[in-house]
Write a protein that binds this DNA or RNA. Structure first.
Length: 260
DNA sequence: ATGTCGTAACGTTTACGA
């Protein structure tokens, strides 16, 4: 089963680029972030016509996540547990049936957190504490799971072309990286790092200052796998070439092949 | 070159978030 994460940076502006990629890549599941749309305005027919089931968790103008799946989606839930006052649309879950077993899919758009320090950074770190609690709960459920999305975390220096430029940034500050490490220390696998330790692999290039042309990127879009899901991992691929197309998102798709 | 996008709004330009 091909499961992808893709921060599309606005559905209205990305209809062409997104449908082109879907038609070529043919993922079974696409976990989308930053749809920047309310649910009612999401062009679901575009994807239903291509054989996808569509579940959204949107809000006006900002944030918003969605799941597209060629297989039926069951037990869909919206919102990361742990703070009833959190109104930001950053989390959606659903269960999909593989050939042999069910897999819980979690799509996430982790807060950016800049400027740091400050209230936005505090929100990011608090959100990551809730994320860790959700991961612990899912581990206890003993269902294989995938937590995929825009983590807004550069895990290590090898994941940035110019790590020194990110020292004080919320994406690379020690508290952010430590919170990401806590997820890994629970036993979760960073799918991309299961395949290579090499530097120079990125999933985001800023629109500014010719970042793409200079390959000044960062790797911030991740798929974390529970131990049972990691046992089914066949490969993890970054669709880098998507960034060079017309009207691209600033992120590219990252996907795994899961033998489930 | 305080460098680019996407979205919203008392819109024809500015503010905000990234």
């Amino acid at each position: 089963m091909k499961i992808a994460t893709f921060n599309i940076n606005g559905i209205k502006a990305r209809i062409g680029a997104l449908t082109d990629w879907l038609d070529e890549a043919q993922p079974d599941v696409a976990l989308l972030q930053e749809i920047k749309s309310i649910d009612e305005a999401f062009p679901r027919a575009l994807f239903e016509d291509r054989g996808y089931n569509v579940e959204t968790h949107g809000q006006k103008g900002f944030n918003g996540v969605a799941i597209l799946s060629k297989h039926p989606l069951e037990d869909v839930t919206r919102g990361l547990p742990g703070d009833p006052d959190d109104t930001q649309a950053r989390w959606i879950e659903a269960t999909v049936m593989g050939a042999r077993q069910a897999v819980r899919l979690c799509g996430l758009y982790l807060p950016n957190g800049n400027p740091a320090p400050g209230p936005k950074y505090d929100y990011k770190l608090a959100w990551m504490t809730r994320l860790e609690q959700r991961a612990r709960s899912l581990l206890a459920d003993e269902i294989p799971f995938v937590m995929a999305g825009d983590y807004n975390i550069i895990p290590q220096a090898e994941d940035a072309a110019t790590p020194d430029a990110w020292t004080d940034d919320a994406l690379f500050r020690i508290e952010s990286r430590t919170a990401f490490r806590r997820l890994i220390n629970l036993g979760l696998t960073d799918a991309f790092r299961a395949g290579t330790q090499a530097p120079g692999h990125y999933s985001f290039w800023d629109y500014q200052a010719g970042a793409w042309n200079r390959n000044n990127g960062i790797r911030i879009d991740h798929l974390l796998l529970s131990p049972a899901a990691a046992d089914m991992l066949q490969s993890c691929t970054i669709d880098k070439d998507i960034r060079g197309r017309d009207k691209p998102s600033d992120h590219v798709p990252v996907w795994i092949d899961l033998d489930c």
